[in-house]
Amino acid sequence: MEENELIDKLRKEIIQQLNLEDVKPEDIDPDSALFGEGLGLDSIDALEIIVLLEKNYGIKIEDPKQGKTIFASIRILAKYILANQKAQ
């Protein structure tokens, strides 16, 4: 899967998984910060994304602290998935 294709998929999955009502996939800028501002995500959302990665992509994040780097933006998350899926 190409990076941009994965970004589109992730935007839809995150909206569904995190119950982001009234947010459309195109509203999520792939280069903007996922946490802090914008979407108003919290620590429970971070745990939900960890579960999403394991369930949908078979990627296990053992240390939740890693999330801070991996979840910096949708693009960084997509790159991490592509790199780690190839590595497996």
């Binding site: 995190l18 119950n19 429970i44 959302d45 745990l47 939900e48 579960v51 394991e54 369930k55």
Partner: peptide, 9 residues
């Protein structure tokens, strides 16, 4: 087995 944190809380 995928317990969802957002449900569990």
């Amino acid at each position: 087995y995928f317990p969802g944190p957002a449900i569990f809380v």
